[in-house]
Design a protein around this nucleic acid. Structure first.
Lengths: 184, 184
DNA sequence: AAATAAACGGACCAATCTTGTCCGTTTCCT
DNA sequence: AGGAAACGGACAAGATTGGTCCGTTTATTT
């Protein structure tokens, strides 16, 4: 017996809702919240993901898949700096969109997720080191340090309470960071 | 009758605990949490700050006082770039330490806090514009945009889950940002 | 040292939120 | 049409949170 059509549709809705909820409020969203957001009953969410870990793994895997795709595109790019900056921008964007996750991404998810994370890290390292090798990217930073910078624009505010301008807030930080990273 | 010695001591403990708690978890810490952190009973906290706004105003004022002091020092500095970068570093540090506040700093606190905030913003603007006027700081950013950058290193993680290295994580971001901001 | 009043602590209550289950009803597929 | 799979949301149990109240402790005064 194949998967029922409504079950499939609801599964997709739940995953999407979970992604939205997690992105906004972090990993500890309640199942009821997700169900409401998805427009289904709680029972449906619990039936699909009896364990919380399974749900989180699904969400993380979903995000990582997108990022891996971005990284592949960057590596295909002929110009090393262009590839790097596009990947960097992409990571910045995704990080900002999923700001709620904070640093909790590396603690969760099963081996499959760990595998994806490893793949993404490897691709990213290659993109960074290629740009450094061609003298386009400053060499005094380890690739992990460069990578860590992608989190910078995701901040939601600062001590002074100046709300980041959603329109170009990221853009400004991104510009300054790239200018600080570029060589020659 | 003067203020009793233990009352004074406890008030200080509560304020310190509130600062720590707010810095870590944001403005919506529970009174019970603060009391536990301070090592006093809840009653003591409620007695000292019957209204939540009063407590938050006290915390914010405490933080702002420190920042204003830093800003004054920066303005006293002879070298415009040195003054700017030291203020920038100071703001980065404070922002990171109070990461939990996110952008909620400008919504709260009474008129007294608003006054302090205004003073800090004015000082900061002068530091930035002086550095720009002397051609040491790039001019294509408004002072508000420059200011917003101080939030960047405060991020706690990124999509990739690389935990910022507490030892020099801030340092790396700071270096790149300053290199991206410096002129000539 | 004794008296007094201020300050304390934490048990306690009510309201809210979260997890997780269960079963009568609906929906899909044959 | 009929049966199984999936649904939804009421419900119970436990955890949190805001806030009060009163018996006990502690600082100060005389």
């Amino acid at each position: 017996m194949p998967v029922r059509a409504d079950a499939q549709r609801n599964a997709a809705r739940v995953l999407a809702a979970a992604r939205r909820a997690v992105a906004a409020n972090g990993l500890d969203v309640s199942y009821h919240e997700i169900a409401r957001e998805a427009g289904v009953g709680v029972g449906t969410v619990y039936r699909r993901y009896p364990e919380r870990d399974q749900l989180m793994a699904a969400v993380l895997s979903d995000i990582l898949t997108e990022l891996i795709d971005t990284a592949h595109q960057a590596l295909d790019c002929d110009d090393a700096w262009e590839g790097f900056s596009s990947l960097f921008s992409g990571l910045v964007l995704r990080t900002a969109q999923n700001a709620g996750l904070s640093g909790s991404l590396d603690q969760h998810g099963g081996p499959a997720v760990a595998q994806q994370r490893h793949e993404l890290l490897d691709l990213t390292r290659r993109v960074i080191e290629r740009a450094q090798g061609q003298g386009r990217l400053r060499r005094d930073l380890a690739w992990q340090e460069v990578l860590r910078l992608t989190g910078a624009p995701a901040v939601r505010g600062c001590v002074l309470g100046l709300e980041p301008d959603p329109a170009n807030g990221h853009h400004v930080v991104l510009t300054v960071l790239l200018d600080g990273l570029r060589t020659g």
